[in-house]
């Protein structure tokens, strides 16, 4: 188990380095003068302004030195300063990160709490239940997340006036208000994800039910319910965990759009405003944070997989 952990963590670190390197080189692939490009072409930056951008990004130094400074900076938590506001990017991100993490955690819990029972139910009953689940999840996967969000706001906030249309009050100030603000974004974000979880649970449950040991357990006189809940469901969780891991990328991506739909005060709002304003340090900072988050969640899923299925530790 220890060597498995070490190997997984080492892989994650290498991956983080590759990602950081790619982000660094992305800006240096820009044809011509990156400072000019980043200033938005001819959008009124003076030569001094351009020079300032070059200096703040260290573009006037040799490439190797820039790269080393960049890596050291990121490791030390220094993500540079925003072009637009001059504030340290790391600070702005830290202020908004809790809201994003709360959203993602809430949506993940909802997706698992809804997806696993739904999928298990369909896999156990087959027939109509199965057909119902397949069509419901097909639609859930096809509706763009921003459409679900916009329609949810239209119904619950504009028409019925039940929930706030956006924003989030901190939990410490008003716990109920916090939950009401979190509800719509989290449910919207969890929708597609729970569809994926439900489908995978269904497939896994059906496959597991065909195993010989299920028949053996049933013939030993255990009730079907007990065999299903204790053995079939538990042994179906490995592929579900794998799929959760594979889908985290699109899940994080959807959270970027969700934050915009609900005007949610997380890091993605920062990211989107940064992209519109071509505020490169802000974009770079948020992209680094999301990419690292992505790698960390994947690491946790991998380790979880190793705990659930000891065979996975060997590879």
């Amino acid at each position: 188990m220890v060597s498995f952990l070490i190997r997984r963590i080492a892989t994650a670190i290498v991956l983080a380095w590759v990602v950081l390197t790619l982000i660094f080189f992305a800006i240096h692939t820009v044809p011509g003068d990156p400072a000019y490009q980043l200033a938005g072409g001819d959008s009124g930056f003076t030569e001094e302004g351009l020079q300032q951008i070059r200096e703040s990004l260290g573009l006037d130094r040799p490439l190797g030195e820039q790269y080393a400074n960049y890596l050291l900076g990121v490791l030390g938590g220094d993500l540079g300063e925003s072009f637009a506001t001059g504030q340290p990017v790391a600070q702005s991100i830290l202020r908004r990160l809790p809201a994003t993490l709360q959203l993602i955690a809430a949506a993940a819990v909802l997706a698992i709490a809804a997806g696993i029972p739904f999928g298990a139910w369909a896999g156990r009953r087959r027939g109509m239940a199965d057909a119902l689940m397949t069509s419901v999840t097909s639609v859930a996967l096809a509706v763009p997340v921003y459409v679900v969000g916009a329609l949810a706001v239209l119904l619950f906030s504009v028409t019925w006036r039940l929930l706030p249309a956006g924003g989030l009050t901190p939990f410490a100030e008003d716990p109920m208000g916090f939950l009401r603000g979190l509800l719509l974004p989290a449910v919207t974000l969890s929708l597609a994800f729970s569809a994926v979880v439900a489908r995978m649970t269904r497939t896994a449950v059906i496959e597991t039910s065909d195993r010989d040991w299920v028949r053996t357990a049933t013939s030993f006189g255990l009730t079907r319910r007990r065999v299903f809940n204790r053995y079939v469901l538990r042994n179906s969780m490995n592929p579900v965990v794998t799929v959760v891991g594979l889908e985290i990328g699109s899940f994080l991506g959807a959270s970027v759009i969700i934050e915009r739909v609900f005007n949610y005060p997380g890091i993605s709002t920062l990211l989107i405003d940064g992209v519109s304003a071509r505020d490169y340090p802000v974009v770079q900072g948020v992209v680094i944070v999301i990419a690292v988050l992505f790698i960390l969640i994947n690491l946790v899923v991998d380790i979880l997989y190793g705990i659930l299925d000891p065979r996975a530790r060997i590879r």
Partner: peptide
């Protein structure tokens, strides 16, 4: 695998920032 190391939309946003 390197392409898969980024959440897709985030990679897209990074490129949009650089190239418009």
């Amino acid at each position: 695998e390197v392409i898969l190391a980024f959440p897709p939309i985030v990679l897209a946003l990074l490129i949009v920032t650089i190239y418009g």
